[in-house]
Computed example of a mutant assay.
Amino acid sequence: MSHDASLLIVEDEPKIARLMDDYLSSHGYAVTTLGHGDEVLPWLENNSPKLILLDVMLPGKDGLTLCREIRQLWPTIAIIMVTAKVEEVDRLLGLELGADDYICKPFSPREVVARVKAVLRRSQALAEQATADQPETLAPVTLNEDGWQALAHGHDIGLTAVEFQLLRVMMQSPGRIFSREQLMDHMYRDNRIVSERTVDSHIKKLRKKITEALPEQEIIRSVYGVGYKYQPEG
């Protein structure tokens, strides 16, 4: 049984993380677990889960801060907050964090699965509505800037944040050749040091996803020794 949905569990108690992982995996979800708050944003730069189960109390960056930041950077990812303190529930609901739901510890694994299914159903319905609202266009790929989505014939290609950034930069200047260094500047705004092979790796994944959605079109082209460009015609 597969739900075609990847989940991220952020929980620093190994026993609880393992319990949620085992139960959700057995229900067909692809699950990743992280145990430290500082690991979450770097992981999300290269992965695009449908939903995050996010513990409030974490080493490093806490869950409330993470929830706000994830909402700003990746607004389409669903978030369920997990808390051990019942008195925190009112605070969670009172804060405009943007979480989709919350679960109180101790919880039953069945409750977790039920909440995950319900939140994913709501998210899917919202995504379908957003797609239906997209204007008709002749462009092979369109961008939904608010949702950080690239759409091929109205269907989400499923890009990571970094892949979306790369595509958006090139689409803003069709036909212009971007060097790997120029693309790196747009990928990582914190001036981290990455190799040119990192750019090639992201481009390779981006092209693979576009090819799967548009098998007869090559819209990102390599210019040998120079870089890459977005050019859908011809």
Rank of each mutant, 00 (worst) to 15 (best):
residue 111 E to M: 15
residue 39 E to N: 03
residue 173 S to H: 11
residue 191 N to S: 10
residue 96 E to M: 00
residue 184 M to P: 01
residue 95 L to K: 11
residue 160 T to S: 13
residue 60 G to P: 01
residue 18 R to L: 14
residue 142 T to F: 04
residue 31 V to D: 14
residue 10 V to F: 00
residue 100 D to V: 11
residue 225 G to V: 04
residue 205 K to R: 15
residue 14 P to G: 03
residue 43 W to S: 04
residue 139 A to W: 01
residue 206 L to C: 06
residue 164 F to M: 01
residue 221 R to L: 14
residue 125 A to Q: 08
residue 182 Q to E: 15
residue 7 L to Q: 06
residue 184 M to V: 13
residue 130 A to F: 09
residue 225 G to F: 11
residue 211 T to V: 11
residue 42 P to H: 04
residue 46 N to Q: 11
residue 134 Q to F: 12
residue 118 A to G: 05
residue 51 L to I: 04
residue 89 V to N: 00
residue 174 P to H: 02
residue 45 E to F: 02
residue 125 A to G: 10
residue 119 V to G: 02
residue 171 M to L: 05
residue 30 A to L: 10
residue 199 V to E: 06
residue 22 D to N: 07
residue 188 Y to A: 03
residue 12 D to W: 06
residue 38 D to Q: 13
residue 79 I to L: 14
residue 77 I to P: 13
residue 27 H to R: 14
residue 72 Q to P: 00
residue 14 P to R: 07
residue 36 H to S: 02
residue 197 R to P: 00
residue 140 P to R: 12
residue 69 E to K: 10
residue 63 G to M: 03
residue 126 L to K: 08
residue 201 S to F: 03
residue 229 K to S: 12
residue 156 D to T: 11
residue 125 A to W: 02
residue 72 Q to E: 15
residue 96 E to V: 00
residue 215 P to A: 10
residue 194 V to L: 09
residue 140 P to T: 14
residue 185 D to F: 01
residue 37 G to H: 12
residue 87 E to N: 15
residue 177 I to R: 03
residue 138 L to P: 04
residue 18 R to T: 13
residue 111 E to T: 13
residue 112 V to M: 09
residue 169 V to C: 08
residue 160 T to M: 10
residue 131 T to A: 15
residue 170 M to W: 06
residue 50 K to R: 08
residue 78 A to P: 04
residue 73 L to V: 00
residue 22 D to L: 14
residue 48 S to I: 00
residue 29 Y to I: 02
residue 109 P to G: 08
residue 81 M to N: 02
residue 134 Q to D: 07
residue 15 K to H: 07
residue 182 Q to R: 09
residue 188 Y to D: 14
residue 221 R to N: 10
residue 66 L to A: 00
residue 122 R to Y: 07
residue 99 A to G: 07
residue 122 R to P: 00
residue 193 I to Q: 13
residue 145 E to K: 10
residue 166 L to F: 06
residue 58 L to W: 02
residue 130 A to R: 15
residue 171 M to V: 02
residue 75 P to H: 04
residue 94 G to M: 08
residue 112 V to K: 00
residue 207 R to W: 05
residue 72 Q to L: 13
residue 72 Q to F: 04
residue 179 S to C: 07
residue 14 P to V: 11
residue 73 L to Y: 00
residue 79 I to W: 01
residue 112 V to N: 05
residue 21 D to H: 13
residue 100 D to R: 08
residue 222 S to Q: 14
residue 214 L to Y: 14
residue 204 K to M: 06
residue 120 L to D: 05
residue 147 G to E: 15
residue 130 A to G: 08
residue 196 E to W: 02
residue 151 L to V: 10
residue 124 Q to S: 08
residue 186 H to G: 15
residue 28 G to C: 15
residue 26 S to V: 01
residue 152 A to L: 07
residue 81 M to E: 04
residue 17 A to Q: 05
residue 130 A to H: 09
residue 138 L to A: 13
residue 111 E to S: 12
residue 157 I to C: 10
